[in-house]
């Protein structure tokens, strides 16, 4: 552990990265066909699969003219044997809680578009996250996968007709008659781990095991912070917290992450049907 600490003083980590460098990431969308949108993210050893299903349901009572998002995280036993049965529930609740908080901000997604009939029907997006392999930094990878899956989500258009006072809904069967969700301002979670006296972005499993405390923040493309959470048994100095958020790391890294993700997603969409979806067959 000492080795790792000494490393960081000179901005050089175990695998040669700087303190603010992410590991190599790969994304792929449209992996599962039963869903309205899906994505798979591989961040070194971490493998996460997200599926989004859009269903009609009743809106939340306090927001009658907006759609809803429901997050569900499933830690598969493939990742670690400790997740067998109900072992992974604590971690799952943490991740879904953090994502809920990050997406709670009204500026992120235009949920009004998801409203069909105010007070009665709206689109509910069930976002299901499946953790397939744990290689450190689960929160960041999960948020990236969620954003990619939402980008890929296609919601069928609904026509509302009024027939003698009774509302009738008609969901279009045409696979091309769909609307997409605007995810430009959706947040990504950036986790900063404190190891020794410095903090690093994207901790690997080894680094996570020797970190004292973590600060997770949801950051959007233009630098707005939507959620903040401190985790871990160590304590953080208030100045270092400020440092992490304001001066630099958090915001900068968050913006860069969002930008790279959007570029990659747009690139993939441009390739369109030419690229084969390989999924796990690669």
């Amino acid at each position: 552990m000492y080795f790792v600490c000494f490393f960081l003083k000179d901005n050089c980590r175990e695998d040669g990265r700087g303190c603010e460098d992410y590991r190599h990431m790969e994304i792929e969308t449209n992996v599962v066909s039963n869903t309205s949108g899906s994505a798979r993210v591989r961040l070194a050893n971490t493998d996460i699969l997200v599926g989004v299903k859009a269903e009609l349901g009743a809106p939340a009572p306090e927001k009658p003219d907006k759609g809803r998002l429901e997050f569900f995280v499933d830690c598969s036993a493939n990742a670690t044997p400790e997740f067998e049965g109900r072992g992974g529930e604590e971690l799952a609740t943490e991740i879904s809680g953090m994502l809920n908080r990050a997406y709670d901000c009204p500026a992120c997604l235009d949920l009004q578009k998801l409203c069909v009939i105010p007070n009665q029907q709206c689109w509910v997006l069930y976002i299901d996250i499946l953790l397939l392999e744990c290689g450190g930094n689960l929160f960041d990878a999960a948020s990236i996968a969620v954003k990619a899956a939402l980008y890929n989500t296609k919601i069928p258009t609904v026509t509302v007709s009024r027939d003698e006072g009774i509302m009738e809904l008609e969901i279009s069967d045409d696979p091309y008659d769909v609307q997409k969700i605007e995810v430009k301002l959706a947040p990504c979670i950036v986790t900063l781990s404190k190891i020794g006296h410095s903090h690093v972005v994207d901790a690997s499993q080894k680094e996570e095991s020797c970190c004292l405390a973590r600060l997770m923040m949801g950051v959007t493309q233009n630098g707005t912070i939507t959620a903040l959470k401190k985790e871990g048994s160590g304590s953080l100095d208030p100045t270092s917290v400020e440092d992490m958020i304001e001066v630099g790391t958090g915001k900068r890294v968050g913006e860069a992450l969002n930008k790279s993700l959007t570029t990659a997603l747009e690139e993939e969409e441009r390739q369109g049907t030419k690229s084969k979806t390989l999924g796990f067959l690669r």
Binding site: V32, N34, T35, S38, L49, G51, V52, K53, E55, F72, D74, S76, A77, E84, G85, Y126, D128, L130
Partner: peptide
């Protein structure tokens, strides 16, 4: 053994 299905695997969630 453990058999589990992803929540998005079937037509109905």
């Amino acid at each position: 053994c453990q058999y589990s299905m992803a929540t998005f695997s079937t037509g109905e969630r």
